[in-house]
Design a protein around this nucleic acid. Structure first.
Length: 664
DNA sequence: GGAAACTCTG
């Protein structure tokens, strides 16, 4: 048997499939990594880049290697490991459906888009995986994680074979929810031998970023090393930049710099032409106290004749490095240059982030008027500040007692239709308390409920804290008591604020009540410090015995609660058992009736055969047994496994046709 | 409690 080419390539170690030679490395570095932020521009740029790549010799940037279309090895579950459909299926009716769904997404009717996707799955016009991906991506953009996961599960169960993009979306979803470890578990599935899809550079970038942002630096390094070892993707400057950023945030400038050096070496020792690494490199040097080296690096990569490519994002990182390290003048200068270079849609050198970084830089040196001015200039670049932009400026203004300005921005959000979030209100509450506008602060807190936001325990604590500080403890207690009604669990800080307040004003009965609350709440513990505080206060009042009594009461109440819980549990268990028995009986009945039906079908066929041939053959029994097993395996996977190796049987055939096939 | 990166294709 001659080895087909795809099969042959499957047998090669992965690292040999895509040769990476030094000259190709340079090519791949020369590709811009910064894309315009408007989606249409981004798409255009991507297409253009792809066209460019088509005429260039194969480089490591070429299409991600996919495992051979020869299908998974025998013995594996076909449904879980199906290869994704090729792009050519996006034609005819399925393309029409795709377009319809894209239109719905554009009109921001995601519910309808998701619904149409689901309904089409079992119709004669199945959505392609590309269509599913588009809907999933839209849900993710809007942070609708529950809907995302639900649709993802639905299309997976309907065995729409995922592409890398599908996996990346799934991984991104978990990363967005700050659960990089779960994302990592999913990623590991892609590395298994039997996975038909391989990770792409994007996969590594998403994970590296999330791991670094969440301080999982060991895992980030492990991921990066895995990227190098497997050689599925070339050493990626973006991945390195993310990991470097993680170490910068942890204050480890040495490690950030050494990662840069490692990347440089991996890429052949020449200058790294992707500007994405330099912001964090400079921050690394600043952290090490090497200001001069940082600034030398700055003038080198951004000076005359530098080949290093910068897009908005890479610029922003350098801008931030300058702004955070007392180099505002340089930052202003760079920002001006960026604005001059900015020439959309051809060249995107400024984006929303650039403004945010500049606002931050001005605020850091308390030049608030300049900050507000830059903030206002966003409109000129057709950038709209979002909640985060507003929040961060409101934060700075509030912290510096410029409450009027902060409130002005809040009003502006309303006028411009920019959605405030819980954090906006928390910032305003803090600002008002800081300048003793207590009623205004309380007003902002209540406003949250009016506009349908859901303050968390932290937000409650802010208002409780503020009220306690101006001795309005009753009102503070009122908000504490409101928490259960709003389905918010108090945390230890919530209890502590009131416990301290009560001991301070010597309302010891109330203090004891709070302590009791802590002791009865399984999710918090009474710290030794708080305990000592209460004990001391009680002692001073000659109520030494009350502490012991508190513990006795708590023990008693706990015992009572435990007894109630046990009773509850026993009742629930009995109920569950009953339910299970019922289900078992039902299943048994179903099985029996199915067996009867199957036997009847077989008898009918065999009977007919006997009539025809007048034959006494007993061959039917084997078939019959196999058939019963087949008709009762609900899960496609196990049915598939059982069928493996049984070449007599068709995979998809209904009961009677199989019986006929094997008995004739 | 807070930064912008980008993946499949018609």
């Amino acid at each position: 048997m001659a080895l087909s080419k795809p099969l042959f390539s499957r047998l090669l170690p992965i690292s040999l499939r895509v040769p990476i030679r030094p000259q190709h490395r340079l090519l791949c570095l020369a590709t811009p990594t910064d894309l315009p932020d408007a989606p249409t521009d981004a798409a255009a740029e991507r297409r253009r880049r792809k066209r460019r790549l088509r005429v260039e010799p194969p480089s490591s940037r070429g299409p991600v290697p996919q495992r051979t279309p020869g299908g998974p090895r025998p013995g594996s579950n076909r449904n879980a490991l199906k290869l994704p459909e090729p792009a050519s299926v996006l034609s005819g009716k399925r393309l029409d459906l795709h377009r319809r769904i894209l239109t719905l997404i554009r009109e921001n009717d995601l519910n309808e888009a998701a619904l149409l996707t689901r309904h089409s799955i079992y119709s004669n016009c199945r959505p392609t995986v590309f269509t599913c991906n588009a809907v999933l991506a839209a849900l993710l953009r809007q942070a609708r994680y529950a809907d995302f996961l639900s649709l993802h599960r639905f299309v997976t169960q309907a065995s729409v074979a995922p592409t890398v993009a599908t996996h990346n979306l799934f991984i991104q979803a978990y990363c967005d929810c700050r659960r990089p470890e779960t994302a990592l578990e999913h990623f590991r599935l892609l590395l298994k031998d039997e996975s038909p899809v391989l990770p792409s550079p994007t996969t590594y970038r998403i994970l590296a970023r999330s791991l670094a942002e969440n301080g999982k630096l060991d895992l980030a390094l492990e991921l990066k090393d895995g990227m190098l070892e497997r050689g599925l993707v070339a050493p990626d400057p973006q991945v390195y930049a993310f990991v470097m950023g993680g170490f910068v945030n942890a204050g480890d400038g040495d490690k950030a710099v050494s990662l840069y050096e490692e990347l440089k070496e991996k890429l052949g020792g020449g200058p790294i032409l992707d500007g994405v690494v330099y912001g964090n490199l400079m921050k690394g040097y600043f952290l090490k106290g090497m200001e001069k080296v940082a600034m030398d690096c700055y003038s080198e990569v951004l000076g005359e004749g530098s080949e290093v490519r910068f897009g908005a994002v890479s610029y922003n990182m350098v801008l931030d490095a300058l702004g955070r390290n007392g180099r505002l003048d340089d930052a202003v200068q760079l920002f001006d240059r960026m604005c001059t270079e900015h020439d959309p849609p051809r060249r995107i050198a400024v984006n929303l982030g650039s403004f945010n970084v500049m606002v931050d830089a001005y605020c850091r040196v308390e030049r608030f008027q300049d900050a507000i001015e830059v903030f206002g200039k966003m409109g000129e670049r057709r950038c709209t500040p979002d909640a985060l932009s507003y929040n961060s400026l409101i934060d700075w203004l509030g912290k510096n007692e410029l409450v009027g300005e902060a409130e002005g921005l809040y009003k502006e959000m309303g006028e411009r239709g920019i959605n405030t979030d819980e954090y906006t209100y928390v910032l305003l509450i803090e600002s008002c308390f800081r300048v003793d506008k207590v009623d205004d602060a309380v007003g902002y807190f209540n406003k949250m409920f009016d506009v349908g936001l859901r303050p968390n325990a932290n937000a409650f604590n802010k208002v409780i804290d503020g009220l306690v500080k101006v001795d309005r403890i009753d009102e503070a207690q009122g908000f504490f008591d409101l928490m259960p009604e709003k389905e918010v669990k108090p945390n230890i800080a919530s209890y502590e604020l009131l416990l301290r307040a009560y001991t301070n004003v010597e309302s010891l009965d109330d203090a004891i009540k709070m302590a009791k609350g802590i002791l009865l709440d399984e999710s918090v513990v009474l710290s030794d410090e708080l305990k000592a505080l209460l004990e001391e206060a009680l002692e001073k009042e000659g109520r030494n015995g009350d502490m012991a009594k508190l513990y006795e009461d708590v023990e008693m109440e706990k015992a009572e609660a435990a007894a109630r819980a046990a009773e509850e549990k026993a009742r629930a268990e009995a109920l569950a058992k009953e339910e299970e028995e019922k289900k078992k009986a039902e299943a048994k009945a179903k099985e029996e009736s199915a067996a009867r039906a199957s036997r009847a079908a077989i008898d009918a066929v065999l009977g007919r055969k006997r009539e025809a041939e007048n034959d006494e053959s007993s061959e039917g029994t084997n078939v019959e047994e196999a058939q019963v097993v087949e008709s009762h395996s609900d899960t496609v996977g196990t049915a598939g496994e059982q069928n493996e190796g049984d070449d007599q049987k068709q995979e998809s055939g209904d009961a009677s046709s199989q019986v006929i096939a094997s008995s004739s």
